[in-house]
């Protein structure tokens, strides 16, 4: 588990705290504001205390920082502190606040997963009648992937999935519908011309009329081929977008285990987070 960075004040890439997400975006705080400076100072103290496992002190520091500067990331760090203190209810509340105030958080799936884990821990805690002072290590994220049907509407790749599916559908309709429709027209013209040439010309068509039918048939054939090709191209584009979107969503749902296995569970550094 790692503390959330605070823009330019974020820690070095080799910070020993574990990372929750790969690279959450953080807004730069305004410079030169006394309140912000105080908030940064409180944040730095909180980091130090957190690294020293002084979670009560770290919690106080982060709360102070949050009262001086409204950054969602402070709520995230507050949540971490509550979690380490076994105050799962408060931790959940802090993480929910974090997600509400940062709708585009890239680590949303992981935070939501963490919230569910905390809710289970909270239930277990209530069943056992244990108090809120038991410190439990952060559960490994890979043990509890969030169910797919609870996917948040703003999940990564959603736009690509929608666009891809739409393009694939439109392309398919154009390719199949247009191709079949103009194919039928072309075949009808072909049958008519064949009827003139080899079927006794039942409609008594003249050469110019048959020639016009032939030209019309070839035009329909060209349109048919064009629509199939264009529709297929659109469908392929849609399929590619769909695949990319699905891959992005899946990777967000199931972060790479390598980033979370083993030492991460102990709260040691896995990747640069700050």
């Amino acid at each position: 588990m790692t503390l959330a960075p605070l823009g330019a004040a974020a820690g070095p890439a080799d910070d020993p705290l574990p990372a929750v997400t790969d690279d959450p975006p953080v807004a730069d705080p305004p410079k030169g504001n006394p309140g912000v400076d105080q908030a940064m100072a409180a944040y730095q103290r909180g980091r130090q205390n957190y690294n020293l496992a002084q979670y009560e002190a770290a919690l106080s520091d982060f709360q102070e920082a949050a009262s001086l500067y409204a950054s969602p990331d402070f709520q995230y760090n507050i949540g971490l502190c509550y979690e380490q203190l076994g105050k799962y209810d408060d931790a959940i509340r802090a993480f929910v606040t974090y997600l509400k105030t940062k709708p585009d958080a890239e680590d949303r799936p992981n935070v939501e997963n963490r919230i569910r884990e905390l809710q289970r821990d909270l239930e277990r805690q209530e069943r056992n009648g244990t108090g809120g002072t038991v410190v439990t290590p952060p559960p490994p994220l890979e043990d509890s992937p969030p169910p797919e049907d609870e996917e948040a509407p703003t999940s990564p790749g959603r736009g690509l999935i929608i666009a891809g599916a739409a393009l694939a559908g439109v392309g398919g309709v154009v390719a199949l519908g247009g191709g079949i429709a103009f194919g039928v027209l072309a075949r009808n013209r072909g049958d008519a011309v064949n009827g003139v040439q080899f079927g006794g010309n039942p409609d008594d068509l003249t050469f110019s009329q048959a020639e016009a039918l032939d030209a019309e048939g070839r035009r329909f054939e060209a349109i048919q081929i064009g629509m199939v090709a264009a529709g297929a191209a659109v469908a392929v584009t849609g399929a590619v977008l769909l695949a990319v979107g699905l891959r992005k969503r899946n990777s967000a749902k199931n972060p790479a285990p390598s980033a979370w296995i083993a030492p991460g569970m102990a709260g040691l550094a896995l990747t640069g987070r700050f």
Binding site: G183, G190, R218
Partner: peptide
């Protein structure tokens, strides 16, 4: 998909021959 489209919709396969005798009115 393309083959199915052509099978269902058909295509224009006629070789128009202006020299076919007795055909044109």
């Amino acid at each position: 998909v393309g083959a199915c489209t052509l099978m269902v919709g058909g295509c224009y396969t006629v070789e128009f021959d202006p020299t076919v005798g007795g055909a044109f009115r």
